[in-house]
Design a protein around this nucleic acid. Structure first.
Lengths: 188, 188, 188, 188
DNA sequence: CATGAATGAGCCTTCATTCAT
DNA sequence: AATGAATGAAGGCTCATTCAT
C-alpha cells in the first residue's frame, strides 16, 4: 500500500467517525504514517481527500450495475434492490461523514433524533386514527407506513437540499398521492 | 427585540446559509449587533444556539397537529399532509445547516449532487427496462417512481444514521415491497 | 450575615480551594447569593476581597499574643508554640490560596512535589552517610533532621521571596551552623 | 539556539518576573521571536512550558550530588550545603513564579509581607522576654533564632501544602523541640 | 442599595498550508 | 519523494468591571 492509498485509508476511517471538521490533517497523517509534506504531495487539499473518500464510500462495489447498458436478463426489481441494498452499510458512514453539524454535539444529535422520532410517532398515530375512522385500510402496518412516509419525505428534502429539484412541491405531492393510493381504504 | 432574540435571528440566518463551522461567533454577534460577552450572557455556547436554531427551524409553526389528541374531524391524509408539507421550506434550511461537510467545498457538494443524480437516473433507466420487459406497469411515471424509491431509501438511511432503527434491513425490505406491490405489472 | 459577610465567606471557601485566578467573580457572587453589582458595592475589586481573605486566614484568632505587651507569666516557649501551632490548619489554606501557579495544573503540582521529596530524601541519605563516617551523631533521626533542614531553607527562601531579607546568604549560613552545632558528632 | 531553546529562555525570564497568569503566550512568543504555532510545535501547552521552567529553575546545576551513590570523601555538611546553597538565587525565581497570587497585586503582596514580618518580630520579642525571665539562653541571637523558627515553620507548612506530610503536627512539634533543646537555658 | 445585561480586550489553542532542507 | 518546523489568522470563550434601571 503506497502513500496515497494509506492516506485514503485513513480518511475512510476518520471522516466517517469524526466528520470533516472533526478530523484534522494531523490525525490523518499520523494514522497514515506519512508526513504533512507527504500528504500535500498526494492531495491538493484536505477537501480533495474528503471528496475522494465520499466517492469511495458511496460507490465502492456498485459501479457495475450502472455501467450495464444492454437490457439485462435479471429483473429490474432485483437490480434496483442490488443497487440500493448494497450501500446500506456504507450509507451510515456516508451520512456520519457529511452530517457534520451534530458531531461532538450530543445536545444537537439528541435533539434531531427526538424530532425525527416525534415525526414518525405523530404520523403513526394519525394513521391509526384514520383506521378507526374508516379512512385508512385496516390491513396496513401503521408503524411501517409511518416510517415509509417520513423516510420518503426526509429523503426528498435531502435530495432537494443537495441539488434542487425542479419542482419539489409537485414531486412531493405526487409521491404522497402514490402512497395514499395504496393505503386509502376505498380505492379509486 | 431583545438581545437573545436578535442572536437567535442571526443564527437562523447564518447557520442555514453557511453551516455550523462556516459561521463564526464573530459573524453572529456582528449581525446581531451584540458583543461577544453579550452572546455568552444569553447562550452557554455556540452549540446551544445551534440547537436552538435547529429546534426553531424544524418545529416552528407545526406543534399544533401533534398536540391534537381527540379524534379529529379532518382526515388523516389532510393532517399528515399538513404535518409534513409545512416544513418543506424550512427543511432545506435544516439540511443546509446540518450538512456541514459540503459547506465551502464546491468540489464535495457537486460530487454528492452528481452521485444522487446518478442514483436516480440509474433507477429510472432500470424501471424503463422493466417496462420494456413486461415486469413493470406501463402506466407508471418512471422518473417519479425513481425519485420515490431513492427518496425512501435515502430518507431511511438518514433516519437510521441519526438514531439507529431496530432492524433497518428488514424495514427497508418491507418498504421496498410496498413499492413493488404497486408498480409490478402483475398484481398479487 | 449581611452582604459583605456572605461575600467574605465565599472568598474564604473558594480562594483556598481554587486559587485567585481559578476563582471567578461569577463563582463568588453565585456562592454568596449576591449580584455582581452587589459585590462592587462592598468591595472595590476582586483583589481587595482576596486581600481581606488572606488577612482573615492568617490572623483570625491569634492577634492576642501579639497584642500582649507586658512580660507574661507564661513561658516564651509556650507562647511561641501557640503563636505558630494555631495557624497550622489555616496555613494550608493560605498556601493553597497563594500558590496559584500549580492550581489546575496537575503536571506542575506533581513535579514540584517530586522535587521537594527528592530534596528531603537526598538530604536524609547524606546524613546517614555522615553517621557511617562518624561525622554525624548516631542518636539523631535522619529523616526528621532532613525535614528540618529542608523546611528551614524552603521557609527562608519563601520569606526572602516575599519580602527580601537584608543578607539572606549570611542568615542562611548562620541557621545552617545552628543546626550543625547540634547534629555534628564532635561538639566544639 | 533553536526554537525550543529560545522559548525556554523566554519562559525562564518571564515566568519568574510576572508569574504564570501574568505571562501571556503573546509575551512569550514575542520575546522568543517565534510564532504561536511555533510554540505549540515545541510545547503541548503553556503549562508544559511552565513545568519545564520550574524544572530548570530548581534543578539546573545540582543533579550531581544526588547522583553520587558511593560514600564520598567530602563531609555530609559540605555536600548538604552545596545541595541547598546553590539554589538560593534560583529559589527567589522559583517562588516568584509559583506565588502567583501576589503578582500584579501590590495590596496583597504588601499585606503578606507585613504578616511575615509581624510573625518574625513577635517571635523575636518573645525570645527576648524569655531571656529576661531566664528561660532562654542569653547567648543566642534572638533575631536570628526568630528567623530560624519562622523559617522552619513556614517551610514545613509549605512542604505540607504541596504534598501532605504523614503527621505534620508531630513533625512540627519534634522540630520545635530540637530548636528548644538548643536555646533553652537549662539543658535537660 | 441592588440588579444583571452588556462590554470588548484578551485568553489559550488549533488549523491547513508552505517551504527550506 | 519526503520531511517537519514554522506560520499567523482565526477560532470559541472568559473575564473583571460598568451602568442604566
Amino acid at each position: 500500500m503506497d502513500g496515497r492509498e494509506k492516506i485514503l485509508a485513513s480518511g475512510l476511517e476518520l471522516f466517517p467517525a469524526k466528520g470533516f471538521h472533526g478530523t484534522s490533517l494531523r490525525d490523518i497523517v499520523r494514522l497514515a504514517g506519512v508526513s504533512k509534506g507527504g500528504f500535500y504531495h498526494h492531495f491538493e487539499s484536505k477537501e480533495e481527500l474528503f471528496a475522494a473518500v465520499v466517492e469511495r464510500t458511496l460507490f465502492a462495489g456498485n459501479e457495475q450495475p450502472a455501467a450495464e447498458e444492454s437490457p439485462s436478463a435479471r429483473s429490474a426489481e432485483k437490480q434496483i434492490e442490488e443497487l440500493f441494498f448494497a450501500p446500506l452499510r456504507r450509507a451510515r458512514s456516508y451520512y456520519a461523514m457529511v452530517f457534520d453539524g451534530q458531531k461532538g454535539s450530543e445536545i444537537v444529535r439528541k435533539r434531531i433524533s427526538e424530532i425525527f422520532h416525534h415525526h414518525i410517532e405523530t404520523c403513526s398515530k394519525l394513521l391509526r386514527q384514520g383506521q378507526e375512522q374508516g379512512e385508512v385500510r385496516d390491513s396496513i402496518d401503521c408503524d411501517l407506513w409511518s416510517l415509509q412516509i417520513v423516510s420518503t419525505l426526509e429523503g426528498c428534502f435531502l435530495l432537494h437540499s443537495v441539488s434542487p429539484l425542479e419542482n419539489p412541491e409537485e414531486s412531493l405531492r405526487r409521491m404522497f398521492d402514490n402512497i395514499w393510493r395504496v393505503i386509502r381504504k376505498v380505492d379509486i
